[in-house]
Simulated scan of single mutants.
Amino acid sequence: MTKTAWVFPGQGSQAIGMGVDLLDLPEAKAKFEQAEQILGWSVPEICQSQEDKLSRTLYTQPSLYVVESILADRMQARGHQPNLVAGHSLGEYVALYVAGVFDFEAGLRLVKRRAEFMDSASDGMMAALIGFDREQLEQQIQQTPDVVLANDNNSAQVVISGTPEAVEAVLSQVKVKRVVRLNVSGAFHSPLMAEAAAEFQAVLESVPFNSAQVPVLSNVEPVPCVDADILKERLIRQMTGSVRWREISLQLPVQGISQVVEIGPGKVLTGLIKRTCPDLTLENVGSVAELPNSE
């Protein structure tokens, strides 16, 4: 039998108009209304905002969580179930929701607070590097204070995070094919997020977690786990820790996974996984039209 992993994208995959086609589904409409009561604003309105409010962390993270959760709900309603789940940064919250670690409301309340803490973080920058010498990059990061490898996406694409001076210092010393300075408010997934992470930890610890119904591969520790306490402890470390997506990708075939479904807007994770594990069957579900038929 084919073993399937569901993966959920994070910030950077959002797109204006995402999730609007879900409004025709009564179950989805109810979720959007529930989300509006929790957030105090409408996800569909933000997703259609022409001023691109959607690209602001405060709105991006809850909107992705809501849209991806609804798509996953629709998949499960049609009889589809994952054997393993993982999510990239914010996407890990959707993975935990799908695995039954917390319910939709508890997850959204966490994501709302996470987005608020991260949106108010400043004094940092992030840059994506495409095509580089890994050894040279790692050496340079070790020699430069206040910069870390934030996202290890695959062998050819990483993101570094730190103070603007430290990030620019690394970029000036490393030969890179292409650099993209990311439009974010702070140095996410780095020690510079320690203050926000400490405040968020208090919020996280107050939320009861259940054991996962399917194994979860966490960003900071890509080892399958169903234990509620371990999954919470990993999530606490996530805001300051690296997103080890390359290692998550490598774990998929090790766990007997042959098919991966990326649930959410865009095809970022599919592209990253394809480079690391070219033999896996990859699918995308980003809209109602892409939902598979009932099992």
Results as ranks from 00 to 15, higher is better:
60 T>F: 02
85 V>G: 01
53 K>F: 10
100 G>D: 04
73 D>C: 00
79 G>T: 04
90 L>N: 08
103 D>S: 01
106 A>M: 03
97 Y>W: 10
71 L>Y: 03
60 T>G: 03
52 D>G: 06
67 V>N: 04
55 S>N: 08
93 Y>D: 01
65 Y>L: 05
102 F>L: 13
82 P>W: 08
65 Y>S: 14
76 Q>C: 13
54 L>K: 10
97 Y>V: 10
77 A>H: 01
79 G>E: 04
81 Q>W: 15
100 G>R: 15
91 G>W: 08
64 L>M: 00
95 A>L: 07
60 T>R: 02
54 L>C: 04
56 R>V: 09
53 K>E: 09
95 A>W: 05
86 A>N: 07
92 E>M: 02
68 E>Y: 10
84 L>P: 00
63 S>T: 12
87 G>H: 01
63 S>H: 06
59 Y>K: 04
82 P>A: 14
62 P>S: 06
80 H>E: 08
103 D>V: 00
53 K>H: 08
89 S>N: 11
80 H>N: 03
104 F>Y: 11
60 T>H: 11
59 Y>W: 06
99 A>C: 09
91 G>K: 02
56 R>I: 02
107 G>T: 03
107 G>W: 00
80 H>Y: 10
53 K>V: 03
79 G>Y: 05
74 R>Q: 11
64 L>V: 12
57 T>V: 02
94 V>I: 11
106 A>N: 15
101 V>H: 06
86 A>H: 02
68 E>F: 14
71 L>P: 07
85 V>E: 09
63 S>Q: 12
83 N>G: 09
69 S>K: 12
90 L>E: 14
65 Y>R: 11
79 G>V: 01
69 S>P: 12
100 G>E: 06
